[in-house]
């Protein structure tokens, strides 16, 4: 890996600067954050006690009240 890094312009020992990968990471992070937020809201709607990560029990589904 370092061999490839030595050939790539980014592999030289110089101060890294934000590049496309940074942008992609930023975009991925943004979208992941957005997806996490959406899933958080959706999970809160179907999770037990309004918690997105709490699991419902079979036969004892507890949904939060609508409008909450």
């Amino acid at each position: 890996m370092s061999q490839f890094g030595m050939q790539m312009p980014a592999g030289r020992k110089r101060a890294a600067s934000p590049d496309v990968y940074t942008g992609l990471a930023v975009i991925a992070t943004v979208f992941l954050a957005a997806a996490t937020a959406v899933m958080w809201q959706a999970g809160a709607k179907v999770g037990k006690g309004g918690s997105p990560i709490a699991l419902q029990e079979s036969g004892r589904i507890e949904l939060p009240a609508l409008g909450k």
């Binding site: 992070t29 899933m39 999970g43 037990k48 997105p52 990560i53 699991l55 029990e57 589904i61």
Partner: peptide
Amino acid sequence: LSVALSTLVIAFAVNIDKIRED
């Protein structure tokens, strides 16, 4: 975020499955 997202998705899927079953 991926881990969190996966956790949320798994929980959501499980809950959705249980809700669907119910």
